[in-house]
Design a protein around this nucleic acid. Structure first.
Lengths: 194, 194
DNA sequence: AAAAACATACCGACCAGTCGGTATTTTCGA
DNA sequence: TCGAAAATACCGACTGGTCGGTATGTTTTT
């Protein structure tokens, strides 16, 4: 059976998330990850070609959760989807909040590492397209005012990312969950046709 | 005279910006910086206590330029200031664009490194206060609609940061300068009282 | 017995920071 | 104003340690 093998792999992934989040990609050594996972270096390199490959595996898993979230909100209307996203904010700020530094690492690595960039840019563009079409649908349905969907999409994604960034720098500087919710409301108010 | 000394220091700073931007804080070694600056390691450690100290010096310089920019727009009205910021976007995306990865590094380091966090959090909060008061002024003057200045401030800063982040990941994915300008316009339109 | 999973010792590269010494600039007394 | 001492700026070899990755051997599963 490969049960033990899968468990080991899962433990490596889990430990990597924890250590990358806490210390960053560079500062978290392979040895650290092995100790945290309670396995040997041999086991690590049996499961992953390199440290970067582990990174990519993590990225892959993350992108898949986003995909399934999008899939889940497939046949709702545009305003409905946005509302749903607003309601998801507490969850995002609680859980993803701890992993934020790691996502930042992803971002940085992607901007400098060709392979990682290749792996992330396609999903990123796909999400942008999805968002854009969502807004376009809203405009066509008449529930949104007449905005450029491309621009509005960037604007909304920017807001989400910027809020997360700010919350990363100054977690206790504001009630971020509340700020996020009200910001979304403000944005929606300027989008929704009265 | 300390002319030579100052020149050396300036060259170190300059080289550090270049290398930190290109490769990141960790990947850019002190040796690399010394070679780039055309000086020896001894000279480096004569001018800076540590690599981190150099990082802080860079941060300091950056914050000072922001301060002077704020100072310059002291006695303008709120909408005027925002318009001015919009006009500054091309410049920001052109020049700061190359240094963006480094600013990300600042951010990440700040979230993990107590000293760097201490150095950045005060200015960050100061800027937030400035922004908030600027919006409050606009509301009181009657040129802005009645929004929570705190929230609006976070929202605007988020947008700027998020756009920069997106442009970092996918520089050729959009005409970012245009997106930035139109996003600002959209935000302003929802802020300005008609 | 064969193959997959895991362990351990080890390697070479790299890196932040040090240290003893040298070159250049500044200070100051004669 | 000149020259020597003091201070500052700079040099580059070296150190102690870390890290990603490998080689080789052992255990566990099939």
């Amino acid at each position: 059976m490969q049960q033990r093998s899968e468990e080991t792999r899962a433990r490596i992934l889990e430990s990597a998330v924890k250590l990358f989040s806490d210390r960053g990609f560079n500062a978290a050594s392979v040895d650290d990850i092995c100790v945290e996972a309670g396995i040997s270096k041999g086991a690590f390199y049996h499961h992953f070609e390199s440290k970067q490959a582990l990174f990519l595996a993590l990225l892959d898993g993350w992108l898949k959760t986003i995909d399934s979230a999008i899939e889940a909100s497939k046949d709702k209307t545009a305003p409905e989807t946005f509302m749903q996203m607003t309601e998801a904010f507490p969850y995002i700020f609680e859980t993803a909040g701890n992993h934020l530094p790691m996502f930042m690492e992803f971002w940085l690595q992607a901007s400098r590492d060709e392979k990682i960039w290749q792996a992330s840019i396609a999903p990123y563009r796909r999400y942008h397209k999805y968002f854009t079409s969502l807004i376009k649908k809203g405009v066509d349905e008449g529930s949104f005012v007449d905005v450029d969907p491309q621009i509005a999409s960037r604007l909304i994604v920017s807001t989400a990312m910027g809020l997360l960034l700010q919350s990363l720098l100054d977690p206790k500087g504001a009630k971020w969950e509340k700020v996020a919710r009200e910001s979304t409301t403000m944005l929606l108010n300027s989008l929704i046709k009265k």
